[in-house]
């Protein structure tokens, strides 16, 4: 289990549900591994369970079943109190930098707060030093100038950098970024994304990025996991998932993103209808009702995620008919 020293986060067969009793399973039997220095993009539409998955990984939600390991430690059912030291090591950056920063606080106070909460930094001067260092790391330089501003005095991109700095100040090992650039203007996106990219390349930090933007994922991620209706349907190295997608859902999603060059060929393959509600998950393959390549077998067989070689796995009966090993046993050995 610990032969992979680079492994940071491992999610095994996690089920997260909302509501009483069996509840509504927003994440249904998902397994993922994230290594140090890796950037994993989780792609999906609303209702795919990607945000619930992130909240479960952060243990802001408790899974109904399955296990969550962080740094080799099982945190599946750890209490919030027991989690406090772990919280420092896993930080999150939210989608909306306008809403997520408290407008009453100066940038300095926003970044200092995590230090106070975790009792880091011996005195004010030392904390301020760390605040300035975090600001410089996120490209907000000169730091003292930014430290005294209020969020509303900054642009969207700068605010998102402040949010990242407030996470970095704790020197986390895992950064979960929930749609980190979807509220930003195009001109500011690349800056924030290359910042995240650089941070994990510099250190041992891993980044789990939730996004709906395939182009962003393709450009910055090492690995991409595509989710549909609470399941991961395809997972693998980013270039493989984007250049040679196997699952019909991934293929359809990619086909509807127009290329930048208006003259390049573009043949969007529209799927019928919308994602069914979690309260009415179809039997068999969850995607069968909208699948362009549907076969009779799909109505009955719920395909598991299977490795098709090269750490690339797909949950599709037709596509993996030849392949042999279920993905997460195959990958672990």
């Amino acid at each position: 289990m610990t032969d992979d020293q680079r492994e940071l986060l491992r999610i095994e067969n996690v089920v997260t549900a909302y509501g009483r009793g069996a509840g509504v399973r927003a994440v249904d039997d998902v397994s993922l591994t994230l290594r140090k220095g890796e950037l994993l993009a989780v792609i999906g539409e609303s209702g795919s369970g990607k945000s619930t998955l992130a909240l479960t990984a952060l243990r802001l939600l408790e899974p109904r079943s399955g296990r969550v390991f962080f740094g080799g430690e099982d945190i599946t059912h750890a209490t919030q109190r027991a989690l406090k030291p772990t919280r420092r090591r896993m930080q999150v950056v939210f989608q909306d930098p306008y809403e997520s920063l408290d407008r009453r606080f100066r940038v300095r106070q926003i970044i200092e707060e995590p230090l106070l909460v975790h009792g880091l930094g011996a005195n004010r001067a030392e904390r301020l030093e760390r605040v300035h260092a975090a600001l410089e790391r996120t490209g907000l330089s000169p730091a003292p100038l930014f430290a005294n501003r209020f969020p509303h005095q900054l642009s969207g991109g700068q605010r998102q950098r402040v949010a990242i700095a407030a996470s970095l100040v704790l020197e986390p090992e895992l950064l979960i970024a929930d749609e980190p650039v979807s509220m930003l203007d195009v001109s500011a996106r690349a800056g924030v994304l290359s910042l995240l990219d650089g941070l994990r390349r510099d250190g041992d930090m891993a980044v789990l990025m939730i996004t709906h933007d395939l182009a962003v994922a393709a450009h910055y991620a090492d690995r991409i996991a595509v989710m549909y209706l609470g399941r991961v349907v395809e997972e693998g190295p980013a270039h493989k998932v984007v250049r040679s997608p196997v699952h019909p859902y991934t293929r359809a999603l990619l086909s509807v993103v127009p290329p930048k060059d208006p003259l390049a060929p573009f043949h969007p393959q529209l799927l019928e209808g919308e994602i069914p509600p979690l309260t009415a998950v179809p039997a068999g393959c969850r995607f069968a009702s909208r699948c362009p390549d549907v076969a009779p077998v799909c109505a009955t067989v719920d395909p598991p995620l299977m490795d098709i070689g090269g750490r690339h796995s797909v949950a599709c009966t037709r596509a993996t008919r030849q392949a042999a090993t279920p993905a997460h046993q195959g990958a672990a050995e």
């Binding site: 195009v186 500011a188 996106r189 182009a215 393709a218 450009h219 990619l254 290329p259 930048k260 060059d261």
Partner: peptide, 23 residues
């Protein structure tokens, strides 16, 4: 030109998207 350069393209391995500095 910069707007196009700032936009990522999923279908080709172009250079990394750029940031347009300032506001």
């Amino acid at each position: 030109r910069l707007l196009f350069a700032a936009t990522a393209d999923v279908h080709s391995d172009g250079p990394d998207p750029v940031t347009i500095l300032g506001a």
